[in-house]
Structures are given as C-alpha cells and as structure tokens.
C-alpha cells in the first residue's frame, strides 16, 4: 500500500472513531438539520447501497418493526420507494390511503394516527397536502414520523436523494452551483433542496417566472434569476421541476409555449451548459414540456440514478430514526 493510500485509510478510520451521534426520531424537513446531520445521513446511505445490488436484497435491521405509509395525496414513486426501502430492511409495511378510508368518514389526522399507533406501529411515513402535518403528527404520537412531502413545505427525502446523487457524481458539494428551475413557489422539493444544499455549502439559483417564485424568496439563501440563458453556462447541476398541470391556465402561469421557450431544457439551451452538467428531475417528467426527451434520456441525465438513490436514502432514514427511537426508549426505561 502506498503511503498516501495508507494515510487515506488512516483518516477514514479516524473519522469512524469520532462517532457522530444521530438523535432525531423524526425527519420532518432539512431546514433544521446541521451540516453534520446531513453528512451523517449521506454517509449512512453509502452503507446501504450494496443491499440493492446483491443476491439477497434484504438486511434484518428493521425486522419485527412496522412501517405505515400514511398517504393523503397521490404518489407512486415516493410511496413505492418507501415501501421497498422498509421491506429491504425486513420491516412489515402497512399501506394506508385516505381515499375510501375512515378519513373520508371525517376522522381527524390525530385520530387516524392514534388508531394506527394502537396497533403497535413503529414508523409513520406521511404525505399530506397541508404543510406542517408531519410536525403536528410528531407532537401527538410516540412512534417515529418521516415526512414524505407536506404541502408546499418540504420533501426531505427527495432533497436528500438529489443531494446524494450530486455528491456521488461530484464528490463534494462545496461551491457547486445548482439551479432549480420552474415552479418554485409550489414546490416542496425545491425547499428541501435549498436548505440542504445551502447547509452543505453549495450555491443555489432559483430560475423561473416571477409569478412562480415564492413570496419572501429574498429571505432564502439563494440567488433568484428570471433568465435561464443568462446563468445556465455557470451551473454544475440543473434540477428541473415538474410543471404542475393544475396550474396551467391560472393567472400565475405563462402559456405552455411561453414557459417552454423561456424555461424548458432543450437541446438548443443545453448547448450553452457545461458539457458535464448534471440534469435532474424529481419525476414524473412531462416530456417535451420542462424537459426534452433526448436530454431526459441523454448522457447528462441523473434521473434514474435519483430513483435508485431514493431507495438507498430512504433505507438510511428509516434506519436512523428507528435507532434514535430505540435509544430514547432505553432512557425512558
């Protein structure tokens, strides 16, 4: 082994010795997380990568635990990803959909959660149209709560998987320039990305029409820009948000043609970008609207990598919150 490699290994193990202690039994957002906490999640996720690649895609870390997918909004990707992440760690998964459930009979969120908890569950993964619902839930239950998207507030595991994907591709996020493009005002993905990236030392640019910028954007640690072409050449990563169809035709949204002309990522615009720019999208893609097909399927696209990494990140998050809960139980006797 070369001296340099030896030194590297020495450092790696030294870091292991100074153990970082994860103490949160809920993951509600990235805004409150410290740099150390974010790095710890990302590092832990590295350890879960191989589970998806080997003969038996399962580890017993959450054996005997029950994870509830409590979804009050439609979701395919996030829901399946959490479900598979929990299964890969040997937890049992209970699927709860608001439609056709006691919720449609008028049950409150708190009652729904308390009833689930009475069945002996360990982790609630919640998606809700109201920002703050996961926080509310975390205040009234004993089990762990993981936010899978709440209103326009946060979608922490999406933010983490985006950041994990960027770190995987670039090694270090410090000084990286990341543009988040589209309907920022109504995007919880954007918010989680902004907080996480900022804390980790990346520079965030918000790109989109003024009507789709969040109010108080000047309070956020970002640079707001309305001209995509002006900044695209400097960017290391482009996170293209999905155009939400229900907003098209509303006074805040320009016409589809105008939006595409100004903010879509197409081959013409791509020519101005760095050759190795990372193209990301939280999915599902509106092909040809915010993102041209050739680019979505092209060499710069990280989109499927994001999906794979989502599973890894969610395994790590479920594992960490459960460990913190176990520790808290120990202290309570």
């Amino acid at each position: 082994m070369t001296t340099k490699a030896k030194q590297g290994q020495k450092m790696k193990l030294a870091e292991t010795k100074d153990r970082f202690v994860w103490t949160r039994k809920h993951l509600l957002g990235l805004e409150d997380l410290s740099k150390q906490e974010l790095v710890h999640i990302l590092d832990t996720a590295e350890g879960f990568k191989d589970i998806s690649e080997r003969a038996i895609k399962k580890a017993p870390a959450l054996r005997g635990k029950v994870v509830v997918n409590l979804f009050f909004e439609d979701s395919t990707r996030t829901r399946n990803s959490f479900r598979l992440a929990a299964s890969r760690l040997s937890a049992d998964v209970l699927e709860f959909t608001a439609k056709g459930s006691s919720v449609s009979k008028g049950e409150t969120l708190r009652d729904t959660a308390k009833n689930l908890e009475a069945m002996g569950i360990d982790i609630i993964v919640i998606r809700h149209s109201a920002g703050g619902a996961p926080y509310l839930l975390s205040q009234c239950v004993d089990c762990c709560v993981v936010n899978a998207g709440d209103g326009f507030h946060e979608h922490p595991t999406q933010g983490l998987l985006d950041i994990f994907t960027m770190r995987e591709a670039r090694g270090d996020l410090t000084g990286m320039k990341v543009a988040i493009v589209g309907d920022i005002a109504h995007s919880r993905v954007a918010r989680s990305n902004i907080w996480g990236l900022h804390t980790l030392g990346a520079e965030v640019f918000l790109v989109g029409p003024p009507t789709l910028m969040p109010s108080g954007a000047d309070q956020l640690p970002v640079t707001v820009c309305h001209d995509f072409d002006e900044i695209i050449g400097e960017m290391d990563a482009l996170n293209m948000l999905r155009v939400q169809f229900e907003r098209i035709g509303s006074p805040t949204f320009p016409s589809v043609r105008e939006y595409s002309r100004l903010f879509a990522l197409n081959s013409e615009r791509m020519k101005r970008a760095k050759p190795d720019v990372l193209v990301m999208h939280p999915g599902p893609i509106n092909r040809g609207l915010e993102l041209e097909s050739e680019i979505a399927d092209g060499p710069n696209s990280m989109i499927l990598r994001q999906v794979t990494n989502g599973l890894t990140i969610r395994m790590a998050v479920l594992f960490l919150v459960n460990q913190a809960a176990a520790e808290k139980r120990k202290h309570e006797g």
Binding site: T44, G47, E327
Partner: peptide, 24 residues
C-alpha cells in the same frame, strides 16, 4: 463486511451504533 445491520443488539445500542458502512 460491515455487520452493523445484522447485529442482534441494534435495539439496545442506540446512540453507540457505529455508522453503517458499505460491504465491499
């Protein structure tokens, strides 16, 4: 081999848990 996820004392370890690292 990283054995963290396979330990039988995960529930008791809590904060003392080592960081999960990759198996290579």
């Amino acid at each position: 081999l990283d054995i963290t996820l396979y330990r039988d004392d995960l529930d008791q370890m809590g904060y003392q848990q080592p960081t999960v690292r990759s198996t290579e």
